[in-house]
Computed example of a mutant assay.
Amino acid sequence: MPTPAPTSCRHCGIGHREHAQRWTAAAGWHQWTPPTQQQIKERMARRRAARTGRP
């Protein structure tokens, strides 16, 4: 599965425009929730690593 965009939902990784209301085992039914600063940082690092081929 591709790494979600840095600003995707905290719980499921779906973007704000596509989200509406979703269900996940961890969060149940939820609306788009902004990611934490740590999640944004980790997602950006994973996307950068995938682009450059580095771990």
Rank of each mutant, 00 (worst) to 15 (best):
Met1Trp: 07
Thr3Asp: 10
Thr3Val: 15
Pro4Ser: 02
Pro4Ile: 00
Pro4Asn: 01
Pro6Ser: 09
Pro6Gln: 09
Thr7Ser: 11
Ser8Thr: 13
Arg10Pro: 00
Arg10Tyr: 04
His11Arg: 00
His11Thr: 01
Cys12Leu: 11
Cys12Gln: 11
Cys12Thr: 04
Gly13Trp: 06
Gly13Gln: 07
Gly13Cys: 06
Ile14Gly: 00
Gly15Glu: 09
His16Asn: 01
His16Thr: 00
His16Val: 03
His16Gln: 08
Arg17Ala: 12
Arg17Lys: 12
His19Trp: 03
His19Tyr: 04
Ala20Val: 04
Ala20Asp: 13
Gln21Thr: 15
Gln21Glu: 14
Arg22His: 02
Arg22Val: 01
Arg22Tyr: 00
Trp23Asp: 03
Thr24His: 11
Thr24Asp: 06
Thr24Ala: 06
Thr24Leu: 05
Ala25Tyr: 12
Ala25Pro: 10
Ala25Thr: 11
Ala26Asp: 12
Ala27Asp: 14
Ala27Pro: 09
Ala27Val: 13
Ala27Phe: 12
Gly28Leu: 06
Gly28Gln: 09
His30Met: 07
Trp32Ala: 08
Thr33Ile: 05
Thr33Glu: 13
Thr33His: 14
Pro34Met: 07
Thr36His: 02
Thr36Asp: 10
Thr36Gly: 05
Gln37Pro: 09
Gln38Phe: 11
Gln39Ile: 07
Lys41Pro: 00
Lys41Gly: 00
Glu42Ala: 11
Arg43Asp: 05
Arg43Glu: 10
Arg43Cys: 09
Arg43Lys: 12
Arg43Trp: 15
Met44Trp: 11
Ala45Val: 07
Ala45Tyr: 02
Ala45Gln: 15
Arg46Trp: 05
Arg47Thr: 02
Arg47Asn: 09
Arg48Phe: 10
Arg48Asn: 12
Arg48Val: 02
Ala50Asp: 11
Ala50Leu: 13
Ala50Glu: 15
Arg51Ala: 14
Thr52Cys: 07
Thr52Arg: 09
Thr52His: 09
Thr52Val: 10
Gly53Cys: 04
Gly53Asn: 02
Arg54Trp: 03
Arg54Cys: 04
Arg54Leu: 15
